[in-house]
Amino acid sequence: MTVWLFRAGKQGEYENKFLEDERIYLTWDDLNINLKEIASKEALYKRLVEHYELDKEKTAINWASQIWPIANAMEIGNLVVLPSKFNRTIHVGEVTGD
């Protein structure tokens, strides 16, 4: 079984949305790329460089390394943990669909 660690924004700004919707989200601003159409992590990296007009290659590599497994390796039945930024709670959920 795989367990995924998620954060709901740097300051927890998306935590209530995650919990109310009972969903997890990628919280990159303006990430309106259909990840199912990207064939490889390298292609995602190149797309991120273009989409965000990034000068630093390491930023795109870092982001692609975080985004790719979520879009392509996460499976139904995996667990998700979300440490709260507001209290000492660690929320635990199960992936039940796309």
Rank of each mutant, 00 (worst) to 15 (best):
Asp21Met: 09
Asp21Gln: 12
Arg23Gly: 03
Arg23Cys: 13
Arg23Asp: 08
Ile24Val: 11
Ile24Ala: 12
Ile24Asn: 08
Tyr25His: 05
Tyr25Asp: 02
Leu26Thr: 05
Leu26Phe: 11
Thr27Asn: 07
Thr27Cys: 12
Thr27Tyr: 10
Thr27Val: 10
Trp28Cys: 05
Trp28Ser: 05
Asp29Lys: 06
Asp29His: 15
Asn32Trp: 04
Asn32Val: 15
Asn32Arg: 09
Asn32Gln: 09
Asn34Lys: 10
Asn34Phe: 14
Leu35Phe: 03
Lys36Glu: 03
Lys36Gly: 02
Glu37Phe: 03
Glu37His: 04
Glu37Ser: 15
Ile38Pro: 00
Ile38Ser: 03
Ile38Leu: 10
Ala39Trp: 07
Ser40Ile: 01
Ser40Phe: 00
Ser40His: 04
Ser40Lys: 01
Lys41Ile: 14
Lys41Phe: 10
Glu42Ile: 10
Ala43His: 07
Ala43Arg: 04
Ala43Gln: 05
Ala43Ser: 07
Ala43Cys: 01
Leu44Glu: 00
Tyr45Val: 03
Tyr45Pro: 03
Tyr45Trp: 06
Tyr45Met: 08
Lys46Gln: 09
Lys46Ser: 09
Arg47Asp: 11
Leu48Arg: 02
Leu48Asn: 07
Val49Ile: 15
Val49Tyr: 01
Val49Ala: 09
Val49Asp: 02
Glu50Lys: 12
Glu50Arg: 13
Glu50Gln: 15
His51Asp: 04
His51Ser: 06
Glu53Leu: 08
Leu54Arg: 02
Leu54Gly: 04
Lys56Gln: 13
Lys56Asp: 15
Glu57Trp: 03
Glu57Cys: 05
Glu57Pro: 10
Glu57Leu: 05
Lys58Gln: 14
Lys58Val: 07
Lys58Ala: 06
Lys58Asp: 13
Thr59Glu: 06
Thr59Phe: 01
Thr59Leu: 05
Thr59Gln: 05
Thr59Pro: 06
Ala60Met: 07
Ala60Lys: 10
Ile61Gln: 12
Asn62Gly: 03
Asn62Ser: 07
Asn62Met: 10
Asn62Thr: 14
Asn62Leu: 08
Trp63Gln: 04
Trp63Met: 06
